[in-house]
């Protein structure tokens, strides 16, 4: 998707992200190549979501330099963050994907509505256009959000635990879309917990445990030694923690 002239590479140089003074994740260095498909795995509290939010420009970088495109990034947050009882139809949710091009005021053209309908059909929800999202199952709602990602047509796509709480068939269908995006040359990052799924479908893996443990081809990154190292990350923070000695 270099067509829009956006560099889809994301580079991190000694990036530190914090909640208050506590590091969510610190000293991340490396790059997500354009067109790469990377899984981000690690224990809860490892800083995975915070890293995605920072790449999307929603979390400040405290130290280091995070270079990501200013535009053309689509983020799928964890599903729990949304009010599913909101009175809005599936088609309207998908149409929100046009926001980057239409903004707050421009009227949506018939072609754009057609694109939204096609996206709903592509996620297997043909005929759901007028249905309120409150009437959907968790899996169907996740399909709607993927349809919105399709409409967004962004060169960089960030997925935060996209397959949590969806059934196997939905996960398979949505994975097919991820593979399609990869085939189209988009840069895709996904936070995941299912290591078998990561091994099968994601060529690259970043293993995080508040700092990068391993980053590279999935088999190497998920070696038993690396996974053990990630598991050693203390879940609770150290009350007496000193300022980090590895200052840039």
């Amino acid at each position: 998707m270099g067509a829009r002239g956006v560099s889809a590479v994301i580079t991190c140089a000694d990036v530190t992200l914090t909640h208050g003074r506590r590091p969510a994740v610190h000293h991340v260095s490396g790059r997500f190549e354009a067109g790469s498909l990377t899984a981000i795995v690690g224990p809860n509290g490892a800083g995975k979501s915070t890293l995605l939010r920072a790449i999307a420009g929603l979390h400040p970088t405290v130290e280091g330099v995070l270079k990501a495109p200013r535009e053309g990034i689509a983020l799928l947050p964890q599903a729990a963050a949304l009010d599913r009882q909101f009175p809005i139809s599936c088609l309207d949710v998908v149409m929100l994907g046009h926001w980057a091009r239409c903004g707050a005021f421009r009227a949506l053209r018939a072609a754009e509505q057609q694109a939204a309908r096609r996206a709903l059909a592509a996620v297997g929800l043909e005929g759901f256009e007028a249905r309120p999202v409150g009437a959907l199952s968790v899996g169907q709602f996740q399909r709607v959000l993927f349809a919105r990602l399709l409409v967004q047509d962004a060169p960089v796509i960030l997925l935060d635990e996209p397959f949590n709480a969806v059934d196997a068939r939905t996960a398979q269908d949505l994975l097919a879309l991820v593979a399609r995006w990869h085939g189209e040359g988009r840069t895709v990052l996904a936070v995941l917990h299912d290591l078998d799924l990561v091994r099968q479908h994601f060529p690259q893996t970043l293993l995080l445990a508040r700092e990068p443990v391993a980053w590279g081809p999935t088999e190497e990154a998920l070696s038993p030694a690396n996974r053990l190292k990630a598991r050693m990350m203390s879940e609770s923070w150290d009350e007496a923690a000193e300022p980090c000695a590895r200052a840039a």
Binding site: L58, L82, D83, L96, F105
Partner: peptide
């Protein structure tokens, strides 16, 4: 009549609104 779309978006999905710099 002008602010309807951003208000609905901000109401329904503030995370998306922030990511889309709405």
């Amino acid at each position: 009549s002008f602010a309807w779309r951003p208000l609905v978006l901000e109401c329904f999905d503030p995370g998306f609104a922030a990511a889309a710099r709405a």
